[in-house]
Amino acid sequence: MDELLLPFQYDYMNKAIFAATFIGAVCAMLSSYLMLKGWSLIGDALSHSIVPGVAAAYMIGAPYVFGAFFSGLLASASMGFIKAKTKLREDAIIGLIFTSFFALGLFMVSLSPTSVNVKNIVLGNILGVSDEDIFQMVLIAGISFFILIFTWKDLMVTFFDESHAKTIGINTKFLTILFFTLLSACTIAALQTVGALLVIGLIVTPGATAYLLCDRFGQLMIVSTLIGSITCFFGAYISFFLDGATGGIIILLQTIVFIIAFIFAPKYGLVAAKRKIKQASELLRKTREGAV
């Protein structure tokens, strides 16, 4: 028993677990929108294209948030530019840009292999994060959480039915930009928990799982947030014993939750669907027999 409580006796563990849980929760809130709009790939592109910026920031000793922001911006701009100049489809452009940026990032990392922090960015290791970075993460998560609490319904209308949102006087352009700003900030913050390779999981899987369980958006967001925070909590906790594989553990936990939901969800799960179809045919048979 004492062994199980051991992680909580270390200050750095408590901080790491708290930060991971918080950022996991906010990413999960964002995931509710992202997976509904079919924007998951954009999140993936975003997380990969900030790697070279982060690497450069560490090389010159600047705050990694700036590097991330700068290369994220550059990546979006180049995607927009190629889209405007060619007739290539969006998925091709996204694939092209994010692999190029990620390759550049890996190349830069390989140039200075001693830079452990950059490996953390690619693979994630919440336990090795400095206090300063933890503070940044919590700040970003806190601000995003606060903004989402106040705007979640307007965002919902905007993403469900943009023309109605405009009709009732909502500034949809502003909200969309706000959403992507929050998404970028949280993706950057979450990099250190699960790494650039897996951050896409944090901003897709909780929402996708909750989607199987709920048919109202408010519920979906709550369930998604719970899934995100609980898996991140246990992921960070377990990685104390396994030393460092935080990202893998968190995403695996989320996958397990998803599989359980997929099989057992009351409305959209496999079991439920089979049961409902069986019930319906039973009913049909009975009414037919009754009619004869």
């Binding site: 319904k153 993403f159 469900f160 023309s163 109605h164 009709t167 006087g169 709920c214 048919d215 958006f217």
Partner: peptide, 28 residues
């Protein structure tokens, strides 16, 4: 102003119930 377009350009898989959609009319 309220406006009902000829064809709704909405995501039909969005997790909202009928009453939620009508409630969106009240947001203003």
């Amino acid at each position: 102003v309220s406006y009902v377009p000829q064809a709704e350009d909405v995501d039909w898989n969005f997790p909202v119930l009928v009453e939620d959609v009508v409630m969106m009319g009240r947001f203003g």
